[in-house]
Design a protein around this nucleic acid. Structure first.
Length: 211
DNA sequence: ACATTAAGTGATT
DNA sequence: AATCACTTAATGT
């Protein structure tokens, strides 16, 4: 039952009547890892409430190169899309499932209504917005100061965190793609991190030791 | 055994 | 930090 799963994950955040409403208007959605959930330019009609798994949020430049902004985890929602959908705007970002994930999709119209009727909802959106903004500023910081080694280590740690596994299953090329750099650079920095004893390298598998 | 793909390295910009 | 050119290692057929 949808309400049960909902209570399990969000029971501490929302009061009973709101949980009931979410169960009524939302629909459960399960996605496999690697699946694209939202693309740049697509209109936003629904917003996800994440139950399990993780979603990565990407920005894209003119040439189609991607840059990872941040991850969304259980108990999060994409607050960025909230500001967009208030004005009926289109998505500025792309969302891809990092792991197999479950979420509840809620129509935007309902979410707007709840802003006025439920204090806990208002708080949830505000908190979520603040958390995303903080993460975003962090990535901006590392970008601005061109510290690719810090960026890489943080990315590995984030990835291990959202996956819940210290073994990262990814090629150097894929990581380079996320951080918008070349594979050679990633290989070199990974090698450096390995020498520093922070990670261990194997083909298609990086083990994060220093968490 | 051979082809393909992933990873490591030196040199250059 | 990015790119090139090349080597070495792991994996699939």
């Amino acid at each position: 039952m949808l309400l049960d799963t909902l209570t399990e994950h969000y029971g501490f955040v929302f009061e009973a009547p709101l949980l009931k409403e979410i169960a009524q208007y939302g629909q459960l959605k399960k996605v496999a890892a690697g699946m694209q959930l939202m693309d740049i330019g697509a209109p936003i009609t629904q917003m996800p409430l994440l139950l399990s798994g993780a979603i990565k949020i990407l920005r894209e430049d003119e040439k189609g190169d991607e840059l990872l902004l941040y991850f969304i985890e259980r108990g999060d929602t994409c607050a960025m899309s909230f500001s967009c959908c208030m004005g009926g705007a289109k998505s500025e970002i792309r969302a891809v499932a990092e792991t197999d994930s479950e979420m509840i999709m809620v129509p935007v119209s309902q979410m707007e209504k709840w802003m006025f009727t439920y204090k806990s909802w208002q708080q949830f959106i505000l908190d979520s917005y603040q958390a995303r903004m903080k993460e975003l500023l962090q990535t901006v910081d590392t970008l601005a100061f061109l510290r690719m080694d810090d960026r890489l280590l943080k990315h590995l740690q984030d990835k291990a965190k959202v996956t819940g596994d210290d073994h990262i299953h990814a090629t150097h090329q894929e990581i380079a793609y996320d951080l918008h750099t070349s594979r050679v650079v990633i290989s070199r920095l990974l090698k450096k991190l390995e020498n520093e004893g922070k990670i261990s390298l194997h083909r298609n598998d990086i083990t994060v030791i220093d968490l």
